[in-house]
């Protein structure tokens, strides 16, 4: 049986009287990169953020349907939402370094979950900064504010910070959209390595990036999923008219 990490069932989400996600049904396969593809405003970020219930924060939000993580519903009353969120590292469009030092940014997640041993902390921070290839660039200024880093470095720091709390998934919301091509490449490459150990959901509107990265594609249009499936099938043999138009660029 195909292992799916996340399963979305009949998800509907509206904010006020705006119906943003319509009857979403999809599966996110384990330890693969699933790309949610679609043009701006189609609801792909909202779908991503409903997976770790950041959508709870939206004013006037209404949600029906269910999302299963490891076959367990995430909206149930017994679900501890902080635990749920910790299982999913988030990268946003623009890096959002916390207002503290480089070191503390990575250590933050460890600290709030109660780990306090100093040496262990140091080792872990170093480890995760190495994972994202940032260690050599920052090892001499770990105490400097995170905002002093370049934007590409900040994004890698945010990745290290997310990885440090030991998540099962990484939710990436167009994490390269604010970066220069070179920094984008670094991040993309990192994710290709990470997919062996993590389930990755990557939101993008860039077709070429989706082609480069996707194992599995979910294509959205105006709040609905039009088509989904393994990347090869999706790109080579699209079934739906809208998908075909999007893929050959005659899309508006």
């Amino acid at each position: 049986m195909n292992q799916s990490k996340i399963e979305v069932k009949d998800l509907n989400l509206s904010i006020g009287n705006q119906h943003i996600l319509k009857n979403i049904n999809c599966k996110i396969p384990s330890r693969k990169i699933t790309v949610i593809l679609g043009s701006s405003g189609c609801g792909k970020s909202t779908l991503l953020k409903s997976m770790n219930r950041l959508t709870d924060l939206y004013p006037k939000v209404k949600i029906s349907g269910d999302i299963l993580l490891n076959n367990q519903g995430i909206f149930g009353k017994e679900v501890e939402v902080t635990d749920l969120r910790k299982k999913m590292g988030l990268m946003s469009q623009r890096p959002a370094p916390l207002p503290m030092s480089i070191f503390d940014n990575v250590a933050y997640g460890l600290r709030i979950s109660g780990r306090k041993k100093k040496l262990q902390m140091k080792l872990r921070v170093e480890y995760y900064l190495k994972v994202v290839n940032l260690w050599d660039e920052v090892k001499d200024r770990l105490k400097a504010p995170a905002s002093s880093l370049s934007i590409g470095q900040q994004q890698r720091l945010c990745l290290a910070r997310g990885l440090a709390v030991d998540p099962e998934l990484i939710l990436a919301d167009e994490p390269t959209s604010a970066l220069d091509p070179l920094s984008s490449q670094v991040i993309e490459k990192k994710f290709m390595e990470l997919k062996d150990s993590f389930t990755i959901v990557w939101v993008t509107h860039t077709l070429r990036q989706a082609k480069r990265m996707a194992d599995h594609v979910i294509f959205m249009y105006l709040g609905e999923i039009i088509e989904q499936g393994p990347a090869e099938e999706f790109f080579n043999n699209p079934q739906h008219e809208i998908t075909k138009n999007f893929l050959n660029g005659s899309f508006n």
């Binding site: 924060l57 902080t82 635990d83 969120r85 623009r94 959002a96 916390l98 709030i112 997310g162 709390v165």
Partner: peptide, 18 residues
């Protein structure tokens, strides 16, 4: 204060108050 910071903090497993 940018909303992304709240999102980032929550995603790391913070409570709202943290």
């Amino acid at each position: 204060v940018p909303f992304e910071l709240t999102e980032a903090g929550l995603s790391l497993g913070s409570t709202r108050w943290q």
